[in-house]
């Protein structure tokens, strides 16, 4: 019971990070593909405006996942970080490059500087979700045994499942970002950007859907147990919800109902995360370590859950206020004071 609650807490954090943090990475993807400095300027400005006030808060979800994991499931944490050291380290470096470049971009004085920082930002925005996704894929594929670097450092995260999950993380992030940015552009009264992001949302949605199906097929031959989990019972329900929400998002985008699409897009992505977790029950690190066996002692778990509940009670109102202000455009992104 306690162990499962802690696992759910991780899942909540992971879902928040995949949706909110993922959208920030996706925004970086659209920055990367926006074209030449001149042509891409409006898209890049919109990305900056939408991300600047919220990316740090969104990023903390990753820290949250890490700390709950190492407190509640220390043995799993040590095994994961030692076997998957390469993808995790690359992702961490990518986070430094991306955050640093983004924070400093506003101060760039010349086009060349802005370009160099922009390139670092955009490139890292693709690397980070890919490598984090590949790490998750390795866990799902049962490549992480218990022990200090007991798994294969390279082969563990370069299997088909890992690669597909990595690509899926990039694609879903890009899709959610396009949906969010489309809605933001509408509020900002920028019809040409609304069109641009609508097209991107539709395109990336199709790609993400195709990748999700490809992923399912890859899992079928690669990790049969996981496939069974995803195609029966609660796992199947999650997959169905994800598929339905994904299709709904495409329909809503088509009909330009951008605000509602925010929620369906988030649901589609969240359901994939939930589906993965449900499908590999009762394991934390398949095929051996169960959630129960990985869990910390009861007094730690109780303290963790109580603290988390108290923390959420403060966090959620604060986060709501931030998003309200950000979405309503009341947080200035211009570097200069207004006249």
């Amino acid at each position: 019971m306690l162990a499962d609650s802690a696992a759910v807490l991780i899942l909540v954090g992971l879902t928040a990070y995949v949706v909110l943090g993922g959208a920030d990475f996706g925004a970086g993807f659209w920055d990367l593909t926006a074209g030449s400095a001149e042509r891409g300027a409006p898209v890049r400005a919109m990305v900056k405006r939408a991300m600047a006030p919220v990316w740090e808060a969104n990023h903390v979800w990753l820290i949250f996942v890490l700390v709950v994991l190492w407190t509640a499931f220390p043995k799993a944490f040590g095994s994961i970080t030692s076997t998957l050291a390469i993808p995790l380290f690359v992702a961490a470096l990518g986070i430094v490059l991306r955050g640093g470049a983004f924070a400093l971009k506003g101060e760039a004085a010349t086009i060349a500087e802005a370009r160099a920082l922009g390139a670092a930002f955009a490139l890292a925005s693709v690397l980070v979700p890919f490598f984090l996704g590949a790490a998750v894929g390795a866990i799902a594929a049962g490549e992480v045994p218990v022990g200090n670097a007991a798994g294969d450092e390279l082969r563990s995260w370069t299997g088909t499942t890992s690669i597909v999950v990595g690509l899926l993380a990039v694609a879903t992030g890009a899709h959610v970002a396009a949906v969010f940015l489309g809605a933001d552009s509408r509020r900002a009264g920028r019809p040409e950007l609304v069109r641009a992001f609508r097209a991107r949302a539709l395109g990336s949605g199709v790609v993400a859907g195709v990748l999700a199906i490809a992923g399912l097929l890859a899992v079928r031959s690669d990790v049969p147990d996981l496939y069974d989990g995803l195609t029966s019972g609660a796992g199947l329900a999650c997959v169905a919800v994800s598929g339905a929400a994904g299709l709904a998002t495409l329909a809503l985008e088509w009909r330009e109902r951008f605000e509602v699409a925010r929620y369906t897009a988030a649901t589609a992505v969240g359901a994939i995360v939930a589906g993965w977790a449900v499908a590999q029950q009762p394991y934390m690190l398949p095929p051996e370590l169960t959630v129960r066996a990985a869990a910390a002692n009861d007094s730690t778990l109780v303290a963790l859950l109580v603290s988390a509940a108290l923390g959420m009670a403060i966090l959620i109102p604060a986060l709501t206020w931030l998003f309200r202000l950000a979405v309503s455009g009341r947080l200035a992104y211009e570097e200069q004071p207004r006249p």
Binding site: F64, V67, V68, W70, T71, A72, P74, K75, F77, G78, S79, N148, A296, N297, T300, A303, L304, S307, A308, G311
Partner: peptide, 12 residues
């Protein structure tokens, strides 16, 4: 892995 559950609460 050995002590995460002892001091981890602080990090939460």
């Amino acid at each position: 892995a050995t002590f995460g559950d002892v001091f981890g609460l602080a990090f939460l």
